[in-house]
């Protein structure tokens, strides 16, 4: 999972991630999307740009649940 807050300043960022990902994958310029979402500082921008969500990759290897 990607971090909830910006590593440096502590601004909550993850609530924008779904929209950010959707718009960037649709072909929009990431810089423009970040401006639209109101993420101004470069610490927040790099956290958002560099975040890679690998939870879908590792969840395949989770142990099977046999309990009740």
């Amino acid at each position: 999972m990607i971090p909830i807050r910006c590593y440096t300043c502590g601004k909550p960022l993850i609530q924008y991630y779904d929209e950010f990902k959707k718009r960037v994958e649709a072909g929009e310029d990431p810089a423009k999307v970040l401006d639209d979402l109101g993420i101004e500082r470069y610490c927040c921008r790099r956290t958002m740009l560099a975040a890679v969500d690998i939870s879908k990759e590792i969840i395949k290897f989770s142990t099977k649940v046999y309990r009740w």
């Binding site: 999972m1 991630y17 879908k56 969840i59 989770s62």
Partner: peptide
């Protein structure tokens, strides 16, 4: 929570 759409944890299968 201030924001309603903060992901906490992913689940799959019959995980709880």
């Amino acid at each position: 929570p201030v924001y309603d759409n903060i992901p906490i944890v992913p689940l799959i299968g019959n995980q709880k």
